[in-house]
Every structure is written in structure tokens, then in C-alpha cells.
Design a protein around this nucleic acid. Structure first.
Lengths: 305, 305
DNA sequence: TCACGCTTGAAAGATATTTTCAACGCTGGG
DNA sequence: CCCAGCGTTGAAAATATCTTTCAAGCGTGA
């Protein structure tokens, strides 16, 4: 684990650090078939690819130079040359930082102890990837907007609804006016009330959940500041988002659906957002937090020791 | 310093690893004036030089491309291109060298990038601790009970209610009958319905949340198999628990209340429980999972690509 | 079935790297 | 002091590499 976090990658911005594999996964769905082949090769054997020229890599993947360059661009580099340099860096990196890595998928017949280990490892990986991939500029902007918002509405359905509720719950605790909407109809109805100075947050892993996009669009049209927390920075939801916070996409298996790791990723983003807001509203947040602790105290039976 | 010295110093041998600066010093005497200037620049700022083309480096050092290439050769590389790649690797290396191991608390004035790093690190720590501390025997027993349960009730209030909902949601998806109760009164009312063969799960970080203990007690008295997911294995809740799953308690700070890290821990436990159950009911779980995917598909707007 | 738009690779175009080669400057001998 | 010889140097040509363009191919939805 390193301190690369600062130089985040937001699809088309500065070059990536070490989270290349994560980026490939995030961007893979928006890639064409041949680009995916290239991306796969790159993610699979960075060191090997670093030794190849455009032509070499094109041949290796059975594609053309043009495709290789296009892939490099999509990954955020100005061209193949730069991707290659990054690859060289990454190779040196992984050569030194020996990581045993429990990479195997969770199988149906895995003993429960293995499940625990693998799952914990996967989630840790997801966290690292998310942190590395989070655009701190976007995050900063989102925090600033939320901290001064008159009112904050959060949209999320399915697994994401829990994340939305978590966020709203926490924001409420520090004295902000936040509400999580689960019902798509009510969400839209409420979104109509928003105006400039308000903040709307949509949470959707796929980036294309209509029930969540719709209220965000309404909020956007009403002039509210809109934030999208999504795993697909190129998805439809981002059309109506002033700020985009990208969650990472972990490899998924049959037993471990995407919803599971996306939740981990989303929660980290939401926590960062929350803490950022708490920092900026510290004067009011701190007393509000302790007040809520005390209010809860009497609901706990005395400790048994 | 490593054992690379031997191989890399004989002027025309394989490319150098990290001992580039040393090599430059050794070889410097045998270099011409302009070559020395180049070598000096390279040794002084590998990262910077890695960003330059031959022409760029030539200009920077006030020499010519030819000289740069000659220097690269002398240092043992086939050409400048390869020196540059090595330089990139070296740069990445030394950058990662300074991994400050973010142990500090999150402060009010931390820049947002630090918040992300620290938070991710903390959560990873929490996951590792939880995985290490989880009793796989208890977990196995809990899984076995849940997998064959007629009905599963989950109790959780406050932050834990979201975890409970998450668990219930997932169990429902694989065809089990699960319900998360948030309302303490309704929880008790429902607990009365339970009997042997049913499973009740209480989630409470403090282990002493009366609103959650009460329904678990009722379920316990009714003969249901009871499971407690708690951070306090010695808390009151465990009195009525057949199986205890322990979550870890991370150090907390003012800005990062315990609720935050406990949630991470709880979710990991819940995920393990879920996967364990899914494994044991694979025959029915797998089709149920894919069915729910398909049901969701049409709720997503077409991909933008 | 057709038309449209996206995907793709061949080839042209642009850049970067390597090589060549002539000029320059230094050194030592006449 | 001058000159020959040799090593050093950079300009420019040659080559390799990377990037862009563009038309053909392919899949998709009307």
C-alpha cells in the first residue's frame, strides 16, 4: 500500500499510479472488444508489456497499433509512450513489493475459513483501489457543496439504497438536513423542491439505474448541485452530475456479485464525503455528534463486564 | 545495496537496477565532459529525466542527442529508450519507498487527500482484524443453522439496522425467508412467532442495545437458534446467543465515531455468513441469483458506450 | 432487409531515436 | 610555433517508433 492516492485518475485526467489493474476493471465495460484484449494484456503482465513497442503489443494481442494507442488514451495517458513508462514503473514496483495475494475466486466448496480470508482480502483490495482511484478534486468540490447546502437529498435503490441511508443518517447526526430516498416516485417528487444551493446525490454502481437518474436529472434542472457516486464514470448518470465520484469495480464471481464489493467501495466514498463535511462544519458538527451519543446512552443496558 | 553490482558495472552488461547513481559515479571518470553532464542529470533527477525525450535531455544538459545516446550505452543500456524505461521504474520505486504508514488520527485540518488515505487504511485494518478474530467454528455453526432455517429474523437498530437490512436483502435474493426488523416493538412481536428451526440474528456493536437484545431473548426462549454479531463478546446480548460472531473494534476518533468502523466489520461478518449460506444452498441459490439479475436488467437504461 | 453508426486495421504522417559523418579542439611531436 | 593525429562533439540523415487518418467491415436496431 502506498501513498499514490494523491495523483488520482479520473478517466481522462493525469496518468495513473499503481492502481492500473483497478482502472482497467473500471473502464473495461466501456471498452470495445479489441481494446479489452489490449487492456487485459497490460493489466495481466505490466512488466512484459513495458518491454514491447506499440507494434509488438498490437501483434501480441492480435490487434493494430491504432487500437493500442486508443486503449492507452482511454486509460488516461497521452499516448502509448506514456503508458509504457507507467508500466515500467509499475513493474519495478511489483517486483519489489512482494505480495502473496489470495487471488483465487471463492469456490462453492471452499472451507469457511478460506471464505473469510478471501473475502477480507478482496474487500481490502477494493478499498485500496477505490482510494487510489478517487479524484480528490471532485471529492473536495462535492464536500464543499454538501457542507454549505441548505438541504441534501440522496437517491439510491437496491443495494445502493443502504449506502444512501447510511450517508443521510450520518449527515443528520452532524446537524445537516439530509434525506435518503428509496422510493423513485417520492424521490422525483422531492427533487422538484430543490433549487440552487441544495445538493442532490445519486448512488448507482451501474451508472444507468433509471430510478436514480431521473430524480438527479430533475434536481440538476432545478439548479441544485448534483453529485454522482458511480462505478461507471461514463454512464448516463454522469450527464446530470456536477461532480463525479468514482467507485472501483472489483472482480466478481458467481458467489460474490458486484453488488457486494461495490457496496464496500461506495461506503468508503460516502465516509470520505462525510468526514470532509464534518471537518468543514466542525463548529456545529462536534457538539451535534456528542449530543447524539448522549441521547443514545440510556438505550444501552448497563455493561456486564 | 544489492548483489547487482557485479553484473551491472562491467560497462556493457545488462541494464542497471536501482544502483544507478553508484554506477554513474563509478563510470564518471571514463566519461567525456558532455557525457558526464548527461549522467549527472540522470542520476540527480531520474524521475524528471524519465519525462524527457532524447532531444529534451540533450537540450537540458546543453549537449546533443548523440551524446545522450552514447551515455545511455555507456551505462549499459541498448539505447536511450531503455534507459528511460529504467528511469521510470526507478522513479516509481523511490516514490513508493516513502510509505509513511498512515497511523495518525484524522484531524480537522487534514487535506481531503489525507482523509481518503487514512480512512482507507483504517478500514483495511479493521477488515484484517475482523478476519483474524472471527471464530470460524462459530461462523460455521451459524451458517449451518441459517442455511437450513425455516425463517430468519434479523434485529438491528441505528447504524446496525443498515447491516441487518443488507443481510436480509441478500438472503432473500437467494430464496431464503429473511426479514430485517428495525422497529423494536415489531421485532419483539415477530420474535414471538419463532420456534425451533428458525434463526434469529442480533446485530449490535456495543452488545448492550436493549432494543435488539429483547427480541433476541424472546426468540431464544421460543427455541429458535440465536446468533449475535457484536463487538463485545462479553456483553449482555451474548446471554441469549447460541452462536457469537465477534466484530473488531477499531480505534476511534472524534471525527470517526465507532459506528463507522464497526459497520465495516459487521458487513464483513455478514458477507461471510451470506456466502457460507449461499455455498450450502448452492443448488437453489445460484438460479435465484441469476434470476434477480435478469429481473433488474430492464431497469437500467441502455449503455452509453 | 437496409441504413446507420461504431469498431477496426492499413497506411500515411509525425515524432523520437539512432547512426553517420564532418568539423572542431586538444595534445604531443617536429 | 606549427602541424598531424586522435578523440570528442553535434548537425543532419536514416531508421524506428508512435500517432493520426480514413475507408472498409461489422453489428444493431428500425
Amino acid at each position: 500500500m502506498t501513498n499514490d492516492v494523491k495523483e488520482s485518475f479520473s478517466a481522462d485526467s493525469p496518468p495513473a499510479p499503481a492502481a492500473l489493474a483497478a482502472k482497467v476493471r473500471t473502464l473495461a465495460p466501456s471498452m470495445t472488444r479489441s481494446m479489452q484484449r489490449v487492456a487485459e494484456a497490460v493489466a495481466g503482465d505490466p512488466a512484459g508489456c513495458a518491454a514491447l513497442t506499440v507494434t509488438g503489443l498490437a501483434e501480441l494481442t492480435g490487434t493494430s497499433e491504432a487500437t493500442v494507442v486508443r486503449t492507452a488514451r482511454l486509460l488516461g495517458y497521452p499516448g502509448y509512450r506514456d503508458l509504457r513508462l507507467a508500466l515500467a514503473g509499475l513493474a519495478a514496483h511489483q517486483q519489489s513489493g512482494r505480495a502473496p495475494a489470495v487471488t483465487a475466486d471463492i469456490a462453492v466448496d471452499d472451507p469457511i475459513a478460506d471464505v473469510v480470508t478471501k473475502l477480507a482480502y478482496d474487500e481490502q483490495q477494493t478499498l485500496a483501489d477505490t482510494a487510489a482511484g478517487l479524484d480528490t478534486v471532485q471529492l473536495g468540490a462535492a464536500v464543499a457543496a454538501a457542507a454549505t447546502a441548505r438541504r441534501i437529498d440522496v437517491y439510491g435503490v437496491g443495494a445502493s439504497s443502504l449506502v444512501g441511508q447510511d450517508l443521510a443518517q450520518k449527515l443528520l447526526r452532524i446537524g445537516l438536513i439530509a434525506h435518503a430516498h428509496t422510493d423513485p416516485h417520492l424521490a422525483v417528487t422531492n427533487a422538484v423542491q430543490l433549487r440552487s444551493g441544495d445538493v442532490a446525490i445519486a448512488i448507482t454502481h451501474s451508472g444507468s439505474t433509471g430510478d436514480v437518474i431521473e430524480p438527479l436529472r430533475v434536481a440538476f434542472d432545478r439548479g441544485a448541485t448534483t453529485i454522482a457516486i458511480t462505478g461507471r464514470p461514463d454512464g448516463p448518470v454522469t450527464q446530470y452530475a456536477d461532480h463525479i465520484l468514482t467507485t472501483s469495480t472489483a472482480r466478481e464471481s458467481e458467489l460474490r456479485p458486484a453488488a457486494m464489493s461495490s457496496r464496500t467501495s461506495q461506503l468508503l466514498v460516502v465516509d470520505c464525503l462525510f468526514i470532509g463535511v464534518a471537518q468543514r462544519t466542525y463548529e456545529t458538527a462536534a457538539p451535534a455528534l456528542s449530543a447524539s451519543y448522549e441521547a443514545l446512552a440510556h438505550r444501552h443496558t448497563p455493561r456486564s463486564r
